[in-house]
Nucleic acid binder design. Structure first.
Lengths: 178, 178
DNA sequence: ACCTGAACACCGTTCAAGT
DNA sequence: ACCTGAACACCGTTCAAGT
């Protein structure tokens, strides 16, 4: 006796799933993102999720993308390059665990792997936009990639905020101003 | 009718489990490290593993440690600092997937988290040993941490070997020689 | 088109019971 | 001390069947 809801808009139903998934990710990390639990929370049978998403990884990516867009909407448009880099590093630090889970899933799941690449590409564009003026154009690619690697590497270690900033500041200065 | 083997040395039986785990990790990554499959391969009931290791994560750490020691035993004692850094980066690149899995498990498991910290500390010691001469002592900590972050960050992206080396070389030069 | 119920295959872990 | 067999609780995914 399936209780279908053709009256509701499809996009709304998809959005409800993504919203629920996002909430679970923010609350308890990837561990909390269980299709069974998510469906129960939405009052659905677990199989219902699979009508809208082919795999759990697709739900994961959709929820991550919502989270990312929330961050980007708060992006500051003012300040010098280093300040903006530090701001982004702090935001990424807030979601480090999700990013670690994402990278782990990306090993197995092509959707997640593709999303991982997209995020990297996007962050790279933002970084270029932030510090293009500081960098001599001839070494732009190397400098930007090195700064990105520096930040990602620093975020891998769970350092206190002050030390994190100190390291990024130190590295940024040396990488950008030779 | 448990078939116990008190004649065999305990350490040998532990080693057999760790060896099997290592083989599975090298073959198929963390996904292949299943307690059920591992026990079957060793001709044991799955519960037998738990007589020697409290959790799967302990098996994982023991196997990772074997792999790490195999790498370290091949460590070159010659060459300049940058060459040795690049050599290490190449070795770490070979096991990037395992490291990603390790970091993901480290979020949940304290044993893995502790091992992660130990590995980082060890690599840091090696890096200090490799490039202490190149670096001015006053900024040793910052420089070493920044170089480590640079390498880890570069390894996160799946770049071709040439580009990887190019980036590390670029970053290393700017970070070490200001 | 949309959703359910039930099953499938696979986990890690526990534990009473046996030698 | 050492190991088994069987169970437990939990997964993601599939699919025939219903509206």
């Amino acid at each position: 006796m399936p209780r279908t809801r053709p009256d509701l808009d499809r996009d709304d139903k998809v959005a409800a799933i993504v919203d629920g998934a996002r909430g679970r990710l923010l609350d308890g990390g990837y561990e909390s993102l269980s299709i069974v639990a998510l469906a129960r929370e939405l009052g659905l049978a677990q199989a219902a999720i699979y009508w809208y998403f082919p795999t759990k990884d697709h739900v994961f990516v959709a929820a991550l993308d919502r989270i990312l867009h929330d961050i980007l909407s708060r992006k500051p448009r003012t300040g010098d390059a280093l300040t903006r880099v530090l701001w982004f590093a702090d935001r990424l630090h807030d979601f480090q665990d999700l990013r670690v889970s994402m990278r782990d899933r990306a090993r197995t799941s092509e959707v997640v792997a593709e999303y991982d690449r997209d995020v990297t590409a996007l962050l790279r564009v933002l970084l270029v936009g932030a510090c293009a003026d500081d960098v001599q154009a001839s070494t732009l690619d190397d400098t930007v990639d090195a700064v990105m690697a520096l930040c990602d590497g620093v975020l891998l270690r769970d350092l206190p905020k002050a030390r994190r900033h100190q390291l990024i500041r130190f590295g940024y200065t040396r990488l950008v101003h030779p």
